[in-house]
Design a binder for these strands. Structure first.
Lengths: 205, 205, 205, 205
DNA sequence: GATGAATGAGGGTTCATTCAT
DNA sequence: GATGAATGAACCCTCATTCAT
């Protein structure tokens, strides 16, 4: 259920697969750029192939369908976020809850700022792709990272609080990005109030 | 819920006769049902007309394009939410901030629960429809309703806090609906913690 | 084969037909205006009815089909040209051939200048309307008027010369109108050279 | 007839492979046949593709729209006529004006006889296609070829005379073809009288 | 007679996918 | 492996015509 193609395990490239890897990357990068600039409307295989500098035929040698590209993009973005959060959590073991949360916040905001439109579009794409199980697993993974942290500080209902915090922050960040131009620091300041306030309330609940 | 029907997108024809009004309603209801069940994928004019029990030609007598139907749906849902929130706010003048917020929360949750998938889909549709100005105005309207309430209780930065609260709650509710089956009361309980916690933090900020 | 509705024989209007006459005129005038401004592309029954200020249903009470409107327009324009030429010929019995031709030329140019685009469009419409016999008869009528004149001055092959003169002048006038802005006098001057030159050559042939 | 194929409208794709070139030719030939037999009424992309023996999709790989096919046909026919006239003019340098004109006449008549109905239809199509500038340039080109010849023989107003001669001959030839069945020789005989007569008159003017 | 709502076949265009070269 | 020409189902939209009121 986790992405099969994701991070190359060993940096030692098998020579005969280097080209293939480059082609796949070109396709995925082209896809990202198209989604970012034009959304799903211009996201079609001919266009992707053209932007990626390969032929449609080649594209179909690496991806069995258009949806498979979306799925792979989703998996990549998820992997990136999951890994970044896990690393931030690992590096926060010595900190207070608030400090640890701030680190996670920064990571999340940085992730969303990278390709804001892609995030929104992939969120929607989830609704028609056959990813139900994988999506649940991903959300569980994220919730685990955060609930582990919360539990350490004796926040009750850590699992549910973690999920709700993720949902709320996601809504806040996407909302700000969709309506206003704000830099990472401004978003962070606003998200911090939300996160701290919510956690405090959850603690007392 | 008390809202009168909003002004149509850029209607081909104002429905003057009762029959015409019924036709427009049938088209909008069919559209809602299709979005709810199958999302944008099956949202095509032939299908809409078929489900509505009219011909495509008739559909195009009342809506200049497929997008115009989406726009009208968005306008209707927005009107409904705006009016319901305004009314709830009006009926909460005697209450404490927390009680007033709870009323608004209940209205919002009820609204989202009505057609959860439609809400998600229309949110995405906004990104490719020419609604920028209207969307800003709508968000301002909602923020106004809430910031007026917040200001009455001396919450600082009422305008921004109102917007962020809306974003966060929206994310929370959509998140819960997308992943889990939860009834209105359960969602309310979780949203309440978020709202109260955030407002308290905002007050002390 | 000649138009059934054409010129009202007696100016005494039958009261119960006055309204009908007005409706038919409105439709034909609207049709002319649309053809002049937008060609066959916007020439559709709904649009015609709208411009004429009547309902489509009413339009279909007076014309059995869209093509019937085109046919009636063609008949009207033809009647006008035929009558105007016949009258000009009748008034030219005392004149020289050149003077008589000039009168016919002026009539023809004035006719084309009235609705230049309509003329071009109806010429094309002839090619798909079932008017073969009528068109032949019309061309014969015009040729008769002119060949009678030519025969009076002993031009050989009067019939064929008449037809060819009409074709050539038609081409010249339409050509000038399509490419350049020229007033009636300028067109007349150029057409005169053509007509006189051609007739002199035909005489000597 | 010696003309190389003109540059395509605004081609989706330059046909690089032999197969592609054959496809484009098939589409253009099918288009010509349909226009010749049924006019613009049956000129629809599905029908064209069917007659050409390809799929609609293929048609749209080479032509961005239906109108683009008409435009390409117009360009081809114009190129053919322009080149044929230029060649005929070049081969007539030693001849008298009348002899040279006769050569041009023969070329023009042969051109019109090839696809008479196509000529008429494309003439009409010009009125709704975005070709204004190109059409002017084409008419100027033809006028240049002929006015150069006229000027050599000291015909006054050579430019205008050339244009008017073209218009008149075009009208004559199209008129004859539309009404009567006549072979090239008969048309030539009649056009000759017109051309010689007009030029003589223009000279004396 | 007049109205205008409704019909639905027809036609333009796109794009995911296949396959011969 | 790569290419890109070809396919055709699917979808948007129009407009001549009908018919209930």
């Amino acid at each position: 259920m986790t992405s099969p193609v994701a991070q190359p395990a060993s940096p030692r490239k098998q020579p005969r697969q280097a080209r293939a890897r480059a082609t796949v990357d070109a396709i995925l990068q082209a896809s990202t750029r198209i989604l970012q600039k034009h959304g799903l409307e211009k996201f079609n295989t001919n266009h992707i192939a053209e932007v990626a500098g390969v032929s449609v035929g080649t594209l179909y040698q690496y991806f069995p369908s258009k949806d498979a590209i979306l799925i792979e993009l989703i998996r990549q973005k998820r992997s990136q976020l999951r890994d970044a959060l896990a690393e931030a959590a690992a590096q926060s073991v010595e900190l207070t809850l608030e400090q640890a949360l701030d680190n996670l916040l920064r990571v999340t905001i940085a992730h969303q700022l990278r390709w804001p439109m892609v995030g929104r579009t992939l969120d929607y794409a989830e609704s028609f792709l056959p990813l139900a199980d994988e999506s649940l697993a991903f959300k569980r993974d994220l919730a685990d990272i955060i609930s582990t942290l919360l539990a350490k500080f004796a926040v009750p209902d850590a699992e549910m609080v973690a999920r709700d915090l993720i949902f709320a922050l996601n809504g806040l960040i996407e909302g700000i990005l969709a309506t206003q131009t704000a830099d990472a620091d401004q978003i962070f300041a606003r998200a911090q109030i939300l996160a701290h306030g919510y956690i405090r309330a959850a603690r007392e609940n």
